[in-house]
Design a protein around this nucleic acid. Sequence first.
DNA 1: AAGTAAACGAGACGGTACGTCATGTCTTGTC
DNA 2: GACAAGACATGACGTACCGTCTCGTTTACTT
Lengths: 199, 199, 199, 199
Amino acid sequence: MPSASPQPRRPRSGSRRDEAARLAVLHAADDLLAEHGFGALTVEAIARRAGVAKQTIYRWWPSKVEILLDTLIEDSGKHLPVPTEKPTAESIRGYLRDFARFLTGDPAGKVLLALIAEAQHDPGTAESFHQRYLGPRRDQERDMLARGIDAGEISPVLGPDATIDALVGPIVYRALTGASIPSGLVDALVENLLRPRSI
Amino acid sequence: MPSASPQPRRPRSGSRRDEAARLAVLHAADDLLAEHGFGALTVEAIARRAGVAKQTIYRWWPSKVEILLDTLIEDSGKHLPVPTEKPTAESIRGYLRDFARFLTGDPAGKVLLALIAEAQHDPGTAESFHQRYLGPRRDQERDMLARGIDAGEISPVLGPDATIDALVGPIVYRALTGASIPSGLVDALVENLLRPRSI
Amino acid sequence: MPSASPQPRRPRSGSRRDEAARLAVLHAADDLLAEHGFGALTVEAIARRAGVAKQTIYRWWPSKVEILLDTLIEDSGKHLPVPTEKPTAESIRGYLRDFARFLTGDPAGKVLLALIAEAQHDPGTAESFHQRYLGPRRDQERDMLARGIDAGEISPVLGPDATIDALVGPIVYRALTGASIPSGLVDALVENLLRPRSI
Amino acid sequence: MPSASPQPRRPRSGSRRDEAARLAVLHAADDLLAEHGFGALTVEAIARRAGVAKQTIYRWWPSKVEILLDTLIEDSGKHLPVPTEKPTAESIRGYLRDFARFLTGDPAGKVLLALIAEAQHDPGTAESFHQRYLGPRRDQERDMLARGIDAGEISPVLGPDATIDALVGPIVYRALTGASIPSGLVDALVENLLRPRSI
DNA sequence: AAGTAAACGAGACGGTACGTCATGTCTTGTC
DNA sequence: GACAAGACATGACGTACCGTCTCGTTTACTT
């Protein structure tokens, strides 16, 4: 269970990091984003709502984006795990449906969308977002696909990354444009891009 | 060809809008975004670079987002027209390839990505963006598809909107995550989602 | 009856000055000062309330101070004439009492106070204020005093200007500090500074 | 010797007020008024010249008028103390002469004139000016007078406040109208309004 | 138990941008 | 040519956050 923040830090003396403050910041950020949108997500507002000094935030997070990344990594690990066993076509379809539900229904989905957005505005965010979230998750998804291919369950018409983008892209795009994601769309994507051998 | 700015406004007397100022603002915004990123795109910076008073900007645009929308509408009309004649599978493939090139190569493509991003942060932007850009363009794209179906050139496996999202989504998603868009991806999407009757 | 504004102007061709506009501006300025104070007295507000274009104001008055001067000269000529006949000690006392009433009661008195104030802030105002109002009025007051001395009615203990300042100063000062001006004060000043021969 | 600024403020923790910034603001305001007049006295200009952030000014002073009041209170306490011992007619004459010199010669005198002026334009200024400057000083002056009377040194022909206004009014009025203040004027006022028993 | 050092709340500070207002100049079309 | 209308460049307004920097207080590990 690695902490998302910089270093565990084992000081030779003195106080340790205040876990209550860390959680308060994370929750305050989450709540502010959910309740008032990204525009209201300022360091000052987070500090105010968390009952924490600004300095405490700056001490542990280089930017508010990293706070969001911390919450996203934690939440998406819990609410949207990449299937690691029995990678059938069916389980992949299930993962994509969960992903659609996560994006449109879960508050943490809003965090993901906000980070995709912020990455367009700021190169530093893009860098961090890839290294801490997109990259690791993509690795897991590639694994999932590879195991499905090995098991003869699927036979994609595209290379691994292109396949994932072709599956995930429409879902993300619809979420970004505020559209709903009908399960028929997911099914059709899986049907046509993974070509399960059953056909 | 509707003007991108608020209202044509034909006052019975008094000065008319200064076209030079309008263009200076549009170009300043474009240039700032391209050169220094969205973070540097402040109303003050636009005014400074355009040699224009802040008030002149606020007089004609409710927000900097509308400035970007104006440039996007103008530029994407010029650099990325939706094919209106002979809608063959081939011309649709061409349109999508142009779209990919627009997103990754054209400065105006960055504007589109920035607006998608900003729409996540601000509901007002989302609203405006849909009404002034996404909606009208989607209408043209639906038309293109419909004429292709009528001509017997294509036979999509999904409904019109879902088809477009399935084609465009992966392209946009790769652009948003900073990935290149190989033409093989576009070809495969067209191949598998439009099922041209020639197969 | 000289017009207070620049020149009567007898243009060889074209329209003449619009008297209605001139009066509208004067009254608007007066009303705004009376109703909302000097802070609300902007050229824009005057134009708005007078139903007049800003340019019309700038065409005829170099600054809003000159507008106030125009109204002050007109009003103080009407409401507070310097006694020109029979300059007895009594009539001088009467003039000073009228002056006190003018300053504290008449809306035009507020204009005078506002001009004294504005003259502290702006040298141009000071210059104009002296030449167009204070100077001429002081000349009349000096005349009044001189005729009183000639008639043997009064015998001031100070020179003419110092006498007038010693009489007028306390009245103005109390008005400036928002204090009332009891008639006893005026009487005592006259009593002790003019030394009427009756004593 | 009460501090001129709002509240001493003794927060239980956190940074204290930066005395250097406070002085820089006071001096910047003084200097700007002296060098470029009231028109140049903007909060932005003060901040610029003091090398201080605008917010620092707004944090401690509700308006630029209060800055001037702070400097006036400090300077007039130093350069123009009200005599507290041996209140002879002579010492009162001296005080009035000092007052005249203060108004026409001392930079802080310009501050006093500017505040009298600004009080005409803005009721808030008037209120503050009375409570923080005019009132307390008037109290001291009344004391001075009362002790002079008790000592049998003077015997004014008017009540206390009227006497002070009759003495101070002409001095202030001449300063406001840009006139010099000859010592003969002060002497004559004292002579005729205080009736020292030696006559 | 006393000493010490980091983390903490509070918040002042120099900045930058916000969106609004008034300035004085100008241009356009009407009378 | 005067006028109403109003666009324009300029610059100050007062507010909100930014990220940095002290302050004292608390806390927990030394010694």
